[in-house]
Design a protein around this nucleic acid. Structure first.
Lengths: 210, 210
DNA sequence: TTATTTTCTGAACAGCGTTCGGATTATAAC
DNA sequence: GTTATAATCCGAACGCTGTTCAGAAAATAA
């Protein structure tokens, strides 16, 4: 896979250093401070030198976001699969919101700068469903919902299906995260998310109205 | 209120022309094309001339966003208050998502660029709740939820309250809108939002689980 | 040792938001 | 009507941005 000649190793190491510097700047100075010159300075390069490793600033941001989704995925992966389905879903949602609250600028960048196609291979013809179902972060959430359906805890509404159900959970998590970050209210995020998700879950548990 | 001396009238007219130009650029060229020089060119001014009317580009964007919320509010205000509470809520949500789908760049700017405090008077000490309850766009949604509670259609969960309930609706709407816009899937927005909101509403109708 | 490829830099370009001095214009005072 | 004052508006510049390019330096290959 990763080629092994010394030259290519060094090349990869420099690439990683660039991404690492970008991530640190994002964390320490926010997205406004994330400039090519700032990245170059951190790794003691000339700004022009970065273009040997990335085509553009956008490409660097894209790579940073890609790593961000891997990181988010890892955090979602820490939930115990032995938990009851509903609690596993709740725990996944909690972890999701914790990631957003802990990395607000990172999260914001991941979801505003580039379409999610950047996560996987860039392909404009694929549907959102195809794209998301190959996004590990979304998959973790998706599988938790799937378990709830398989165990008969959730009912699939007549005009819906499993994928759309997972989407609703993601939508409410994402909406809460974005609103909280935009208003610098990351502190309340976990608590509010808890109740929002529980209400949504209850909506899927009830078969009919009332 | 609005003063009337010819000078002040002209001043206000130029201000409006600037905001109008900014809005048109946003719509035609997206946020990347929204530069001071571009605005100045549209109203046949020098870039420096804009600073007689606004302190900064950020101030212009702030004013554009403020007008955006008024516009969103108007769209939410078109729902018939004679409708049954639940249908009124659904109609409000539909209108909200239609606004987002019709003005994606506008919507994105409104919710990412500045904290919502920009909507009303800027005040960092106010809580999110205070801020939102003076935001007409949010209030329209809030009142629809309020009606559902008052008419006994919605039950207030034990650990929640009216404001938080409205928030959950806004979160799921906002999350859906942002995800759709970021992935250029505005087309599916209305349909997906419909089901998401109905599930959430069902969650509030059911008192206990199952 | 020589030829070739990769890596890195300094200087520059066009664009950005913004500032400033001064010219132009409109209002106010006499 | 003339003068003083205030409101506008512009050209030029500053420091910043992402990016390009010719060429120097270094690493690899022959």
């Amino acid at each position: 896979m990763t080629t092994n000649t010394p030259r290519e190793q060094r090349h990869q190491r420099t690439r990683d250093a660039i991404l690492d510097a970008a991530r640190r700047i994002l964390h320490e100075e926010g997205v406004e401070g994330l400039s090519m010159r700032a990245i170059a300075q951190r790794i003691e390069y000339s700004p022009a030198g970065l273009y040997e490793y990335f085509d553009s600033k956008e490409a660097i941001i894209g790579a940073v976001c890609q790593q961000g989704f891997v990181r988010l995925d890892r955090q979602l992966g820490t939930v115990d699969p032995a938990l009851p389905a509903l609690e596993m879903l709740a725990a996944s949602c909690r972890n999701y919101l914790r990631f957003a609250a802990d990395n607000p600028d990172f999260y914001m960048l991941m979801f505003t700068n580039a379409p999610l196609t950047g996560i996987t291979a860039v392909s404009k013809t694929r549907s959102l469903e195809d794209i998301l179902l190959t996004n590990p972060s979304f998959l973790a959430l998706h599988r938790a919902v799937e378990r709830c359906v398989q165990e008969g805890i959730f009912h699939v509404p007549q005009d819906s299906r499993l994928f759309l159900m997972s989407m609703t959970f993601w939508e409410i998590l994402h909406g809460g995260a974005m609103l909280a970050i935009a208003n610098h209210m990351e502190r309340d995020l976990a608590q509010r998310g808890e109740t929002a998700v529980s209400v949504l879950a209850r909506g899927y548990q009830c078969k009919a109205g009332v």
